[in-house]
Design a protein around this nucleic acid. Structure first.
Length: 786
DNA sequence: AACATTATGTCGACT
DNA sequence: ACATAATGTT
């Protein structure tokens, strides 16, 4: 797997005949560098400045990705490096994939051989696997996700007799993550911070956790960066190899790098010095994850002789949108300062609208989307960008009622679902029996009568004999230390694992996965399950097997999953996108809806509490990111009431609304809302008095809120929230009514609500009493006969 | 060991 | 309000 690193002489190498670079260079000589055509002067400078450190300050929509990809193409075309001598780092897999594709397009062929194009984590993994033994690991180490990590920490805490009530594992996990983000090992943790956990044992526990990881031959996300840093520092000869290898380095989203990533880059950049970083300080929104805007602010000092290029021509958004965004971000201090210049007409003004509560917000936005759709706009070109993921559900519910196709990006993640994690655990044990956490997860799933007691025995034996858990289990069975039913069940499981392991090289991995899920009784477990989700879970398992297809083998797939975490659902029908503002960075849509601009939610209270002014500035940058996603229309909303942890709370409009320039904003009344929205009369502080209802309790909205079982009354199981949602709503059937012929009393299945019985039929609208979700009105197109 | 009940934390964003 | 974890019961 690892190709030799020192496979080339140090001097400049001519492109391999027939390689990408050679062919691209041939094309260059023949047709001229047509990939440079159409770049503006600044972009061109950023592409052609190849030697020495370079910082490209690229505002939103100024062609940042284009510069990066063209730069790579340019390097290859000039023959300055071969594809595997370029290090190109992104933060997300999506960005990496896009870059690969676009480089390929520029070169007119697939960008094969660019092995070092990927995320910090995937490249870190690659390096760590090559030199695992230098940090006491085997190169087959497993990568723990957050869930595994927390379970492991729980084990550590209980082994150390620490009350995990008083000192939650999550908290320690969070602290450890923070330390790793700052490249601090257990010994480097500042005394003051270690003090904060378990009466000063924080750093000690961190050390124990690391030791446990090593025992398990496992690493967590942070180690994927820290490991390589340690290797580089302790083994100059290894670092030297990489210095020789990476002739050019490119980093995307430099403003989001944390200390560890910065150190990692700086170590590597001591080699060729050809480090090009692209970023935008105004779009730094990952401070909570350890990102340091200072990295970008300090670039010129860190890399002497650095050239700085500013990209300020925005090709994405129309004038009003851009003005609004610029005006807003100008309230931040401590920025490098850029002025985005629109390249097109002023277009539509940004709109701000208020609603009574979050439900009405969802309804109004749904209506507006339908109106746009009927005017010929595609749903693919519209997005709803929320601050927090819990806001998504209200939109989902509304869209289901409307029959409006939508896709949620980043919601409950595919790979975090229980059934997927179980299935993955089976695969992991088969691929590497030493994966103790995976084994523990599935010994008793489905139920085999192997509970805590049995697991304890296995664990003790494994520790005593220093063997893997499956091996310990085998010994227990053979030695007869396990009795009766438990022994039979365990023996059976062990034999199954032996059988599956034997199939690894003989059977295609997708088939093997099916066999494992079948023979383990896992699919059976869900097939027998009568709950609403069971069907969906089986679907997900099929989806999982399908998603394994593109991979060469099981190992490759497992590696991918441990890093990727985002399931790539294939392209589907025309649909509205619902996602978080964080997830939206780097994307653009014609129309962007921005709901929930209320104090406490946006800016988020916790951001303000924890980070004060810096937190507020980061929230403001998030608002800036949101606005600049819009090409033609940006529509902001706020609600006067929102349910927080199940309790109704009134809210005041976000301070960011007051920071928008009046000239570029239209305050609109919410169409078809109770009380006609906020009325037109906005004072100088336009939104401060935006709660005309707060003192009167007789408004329909308030009554509705109460009927819905708000802060006071708890509704009986029959009085579902599905009812009031449609009092005035006049459920609108989006498509023509063609009844699928469901009769009253029929049993139906719904993707989101599960199984239920039809109570009433009204054209293509059904009232269904769902077993789990209660009574809902849905369109017949969304249910199928159960 | 498996199920039923109760208590608790969660809903801040992500690799 | 909901889901999960912890606790109690058979």
């Amino acid at each position: 797997m690892p190709e030799p690193l020192a496979d080339r002489p140090g001097e400049f190498a001519a492109p391999r005949p027939g390689g990408i670079a050679a062919r691209a260079a041939a094309g260059l000589r023949a047709a001229g560098p047509d990939y440079l055509a159409g770049l503006n002067p600044e972009q061109r400078e950023a592409v052609e400045t190849l030697d020495g450190p370079l910082l490209v300050l690229a505002g939103a929509g100024t062609g940042k990705t284009r510069v990066l990809t063209t730069r790579i193409a340019h390097i290859l075309a000039l023959g300055r490096a071969r594809p595997f001598e370029i290090l190109a780092v992104t933060f997300t897999n999506k960005a990496a994939r896009e870059m690969r594709e676009r480089v390929g397009k520029l070169l007119g062929q697939a960008a094969e051989g660019m092995q070092w194009l990927g995320t910090f984590h995937s490249i870190g993994t690659r390096i760590l696997r090559r030199h695992a033994e230098l940090v006491g690991l085997q190169s087959s180490f497993t990568i723990l996700d957050t869930d595994d990590q927390i379970r492991l920490i729980k084990q550590v805490l209980s082994a150390e007799n620490i009350d995990d009530k008083r000192w939650p594992a999550r908290q320690l996990a969070f602290a450890i993550d923070g330390w790793k983000n700052r490249a601090l090992g257990p010994k480097d943790v500042p005394a003051g911070e270690a003090q904060a956990f378990a009466a000063g044992r924080g750093a000690e526990l961190y050390g124990i956790y690391q030791a446990r990881l090593k025992q398990l031959n496992a690493v967590d996300f942070g180690d994927l960066l820290l490991g390589p840093i340690r290797i580089f520092r302790d083994h100059p000869d290894v670092l030297e190899q990489y210095h020789r290898r990476f002739r050019f380095m490119l980093v995307d989203e430099y403003q989001d790098t944390n200390v560890a990533q910065y150190l990692w880059l700086r170590l590597l950049a001591q080699g060729s010095k050809n480090l090009a970083c692209v970023g935008d300080d105004d779009q730094s929104i990952y401070g909570w994850r350890g990102a340091e805007v200072e990295n970008i602010l300090r670039f010129e000092r860190d890399f002497p002789g650095a050239k700085v290029v500013r990209l300020e021509r925005n090709y994405r958004s129309t004038g009003h949108i851009l003005n609004a965004a610029s005006h807003l971000i100008a309230k931040n201090e401590g920025r490098l300062g850029k002025t985005l210049r629109p390249q097109t007409e002023l277009g539509e003004k940004v709109t701000v609208a208020g609603s009574w509560d979050s439900g009405e917000e969802a309804r109004a936005i749904g209506d507006e989307i339908e109106a746009l759709q009927s005017k010929g706009h595609k749903l693919d070109d519209m997005a709803i960008l929320v601050r927090a993921s819990f806001q998504m559900r209200e939109f989902e519910e509304r869209f289901i009622t409307l029959g409006l196709p939508y896709r949620v990006i980043g919601g409950p993640r595919f790979y975090e679902r229980a059934e997927i994690r179980d299935a993955m655990a089976y695969l992991r044990v088969v691929a590497s029996p030493a994966d103790a956490l995976a084994f523990e997860r599935i010994v008793n799933v489905p139920k085999r009568g192997l509970g805590d007691a049995a697991l304890k025995l296995i664990n003790e034996r494994a520790r005593a004999d220093e063997v893997t858990l499956p091996e310990a289990a085998r010994r227990l069975c053979d030695a007869g230390e396990m009795k009766g039913k438990a022994r039979a069940a365990l023996k059976d499981l062990i034999l199954s694992f032996d059988r599956w392991s034997g199939l690894i090289d003989k059977t295609p991995h997708t088939e093997l996965a099916e066999i494992i899920l079948e023979e383990s009784g896992y699919t059976d477990m869900w097939a027998k399950d009568r709950t609403a989700e069971a069907q969906g879970r089986l679907e997900n398992l099929k989806e999982l097997v399908r998603s394994m297809e593109p991979f060469e083998n099981l190992r490759g797939f497992l590696e991918h999953v441990s890093l990727v975490m985002d399931a790539d659902r294939g392209p589907s029908e025309d649909a509205v996108t619902i996602m978080t503002l964080h997830g939206a960075k780097g994307l653009e849509f014609d129309t962007v809806f921005l709901p929930g601009w209320e104090e406490g939610l946006f800016p988020h209270q916790r951001s303000l509490d924890e980070s004060g002014r810096a937190g507020l500035e980061e929230e403001r940058r998030l608002a800036y990111v949101g606005l600049t996603r819009a090409r033609r229309r940006a529509k902001i909303w706020f609600a006067s009431n929102r349910r927080v942890h199940g309790m109704w709370q009134s809210s005041i409009p976000s301070r960011f609304l007051d920071e928008l320039p009046e000239a570029d904003v239209d305050v609109v009344e919410a169409p078809a809302t109770f009380g006609g929205g906020m009325g037109g009369g906005y004072g100088p502080s336009r939104f401060d008095n935006a709660q005309p209802f707060s003192s009167t309790y007789a408004t329909p909205g308030w009554r509705r809120a109460q009927e819905r079982g708000g802060a006071t009354a708890s509704p009986g199981p029959g009085a579902r929230r599905g009812g009031p949602m449609t009092i005035e709503g006049e459920l609108v059937a989006s498509s023509s009514a063609k009844s699928a012929g469901f009769k009253q009393g029929a049993r139906v299945f719904h993707q989101k609500f599960g199984n239920g019985t039809v109570v009433e039929v009204d054209g293509n609208k059904l009232t269904v009493s769902f077993d789990k979700a209660g009574e809902k009105r849905v369109l017949d197109g969304f249910v199928k006969a159960a």
